[in-house]
């Protein structure tokens, strides 16, 4: 009797209840607060309390946020999209190329490349010298400059993800392709890259979220209102004397939507990418 009971796992109801209540208080209330404040009018929002809105100003606040400072949010969304798409594409293609050669070919370069990848993960970028270099090559305050900076800072993580995955693809496949007369370019782009689809999705999703949410690099390397990315628009609604909290929170809500969509569609890939290396250490 007791043996049977212990063999069938029973759900611990009390623990579940406590966990759910705590999760609502700790994690859902802040999000609900953002949502509620975003649809209040300015006067009620400035009370900063957790209450039901007197007036539902969802549409009006949305329009106000979009129109603020000459449609800055629209420009910022366009900028962020260009930045994210371009930098993630480049870092995934270039990172995969490095990982491919690094994994397949044992040479005296391997030690150095591995050390550089590790350095890229650990070392904090030197800010002002990077600006100096960008100025020297004429890319400071330009979108291509920021794109290349994001590529440089993101490569190490991508290479790490890809190297582990390429190790699972049998070498015989390379040899078969080579016998069929494929050169390096063909071998990589036509044979290997299509097989990397799972890890490509993982790194694209994870890095897109990182780059889209990045605040520091645009702040340093692409200053100026015309160049703002979405993270910088959050400072549109606070001044020293008054903050339009309803619009601020509407803005927070709007820039949370892209990561939310990513999460809903690619939940499993994000989890896989972010926990990579957890088991191997």
């Amino acid at each position: 009797m007791t043996v049977l009971q212990s063999r069938r796992p029973r759900k611990n109801l009390l623990l579940s209840f406590v966990a759910i209540v705590l999760s609502v208080i700790v994690f859902l209330v802040p999000f609900a607060f953002v949502l509620l404040t975003a649809i209040k009018d300015q006067q009620q929002a400035s009370l900063l309390d957790f209450s039901w809105p007197h007036q539902f100003r969802l549409v009006q606040n949305f329009i106000d946020v979009v129109q603020a400072r000459d449609y800055m949010l629209i420009i910022a969304f366009i900028n962020s999209t260009i930045l994210t798409v371009a930098s993630v594409t480049l870092m995934v293609v270039f990172g995969a190329m490095v990982a491919f050669v690094l994994q397949r070919r044992k040479s005296r370069w391997n030690g150095l490349v591995n050390a550089l990848v590790l350095a890229g993960l650990i070392i904090p970028p030197a800010v002002v010298p990077t600006i100096w270099v960008l100025q020297k090559i004429g890319l400071f305050r330009t979108m291509p400059g920021l794109i290349l900076v994001e590529v440089a800072f993101g490569l190490a993580f991508v290479i790490l993800l890809f190297r582990a995955f390429i190790g699972t693809i049998p070498r015989e496949l390379d040899e078969a392709a080579i016998i069929d007369g494929a050169g390096p370019m063909r071998l990589f782009f036509r044979v290997i890259l299509p097989l990397l689809k799972p890890v490509i999705i993982t790194s694209v999703v994870v890095q897109s979220v990182f780059v889209f949410n990045d605040f520091t690099n645009p702040l340093y390397f692409l200053p100026g209102d015309q160049n703002a990315t979405v993270q910088l628009t959050l400072y549109n609604f606070s001044s020293q004397y008054s903050t339009q909290y309803n619009l601020l929170f509407m803005n927070i809500l709007l820039i949370t939507i892209p990561p939310l969509i990513m999460y809903l569609f690619f939940n499993r890939q994000i989890v896989a990418g972010m926990t990579a290396g957890a088991i191997k250490g």
Binding site: L90, F94, G95, M97, V98, F100, V101, R104, R105, S107, W109, V113, L116, G120, I123, P125, A126, V128, P129, T130, W132, V133, L134, I137, L148, V149, V151, A152, F153, L155, I159, D174, I178, G183, P184, L187, F188
Partner: peptide, 26 residues
Amino acid sequence: SPYPTWFYLPAAVIYGVLFIVPTLIA
């Protein structure tokens, strides 16, 4: 080699110019 060293090149240029060089001249 079917695994040419120049595959390192694009990544190495970007990483070198915008990460290694700034770190060293810092």
